[in-house]
Design a protein around this nucleic acid. Structure first.
Lengths: 124, 124
DNA sequence: TCAAACCCTCACATTGATGTGAAGGTCTAC
DNA sequence: GTAGACCTTCACATCAATGTGAGGGTTTGA
């Protein structure tokens, strides 16, 4: 598919799709005219990238972890250097903390909303 | 306490503490010399703010949800307009999705790390 | 064949979260 | 009283993620 379709299906501007490619987060084939040509799995890939970006990860990190997230596993394990492993472990832990922070505060918002609803119920 | 101590205790630059104040995320008293003066709870507040920022929330949103997160609840409920409620609900749901994305990808990293370890165990 | 709707690259603009440094006031300890 | 370590405001710089538009080629359908 071409960039317009991918943009529409992922809710992402063309500009950003080109940016993600520049950052090495997605790859695109090229047609005989220089048009970019994307395959189907790229749709999910873009959605995944956006989720990670939205969750606060920078493209630099996303690029590092993306290869590990492929199913089925296609990675050539020997390439996993100790530094790489350490980076991944650190990032995994940071993601855990991030998620915990998010859920904790989300629950607090939920409690607040409950309290407001209760207040309104009694008041009305 | 003054800004230097708060900076040290929260691992946050003075510059950023002033920025958070400018954004309305924290408040500071002032000494007779114009020095900022922070109370103890501000330490946790800053840590919470940093957690939310790190999780990808912009200061604009953080400012909106912070008042709901105070314990004990000190908010004046009638101030909660329907728009505010809607914003909070939307943000709560976004936070849920964010956390899910984070945990899903974290688990995938974990699986990858397990696979690598298994590979190395067998290989060696 | 012509217009509309695509696509390309390039480059400059913006926004939010930060860093850095200048110019200057204050406090503490010697 | 003077040096060093604080603090203040202000302003300019940077970086990543985006927007926007110019200038130009391609595809498609009337």
């Amino acid at each position: 598919m071409r960039i317009g379709e991918l943009a529409e299906r992922t809710g992402t501007s063309r500009r950003l799709l080109r940016y993600y490619e520049e950052q090495g987060l997605i790859v695109a084939g090229r047609g005989p005219n220089g048009y970019r040509d994307y395959d189907e799995p790229t749709v999910d890939r873009v959605i995944q990238v956006r989720g990670l970006l939205d969750a606060g990860l920078p493209t630099r990190i996303i690029k590092q972890i993306l290869p590990c997230l492929d199913k089925p596993r296609t990675i050539y394990f020997p390439d996993a250097t100790p530094e790489m492993i350490a980076t991944l472990e650190a990032e995994r832990d940071r993601m855990t903390r991030r998620a915990e922070c998010l859920l904790r505060n989300r629950d607090a918002i939920g409690e607040y909303l409950d309290a407001v609803r209760e207040y309104n119920r009694v008041q009305v």
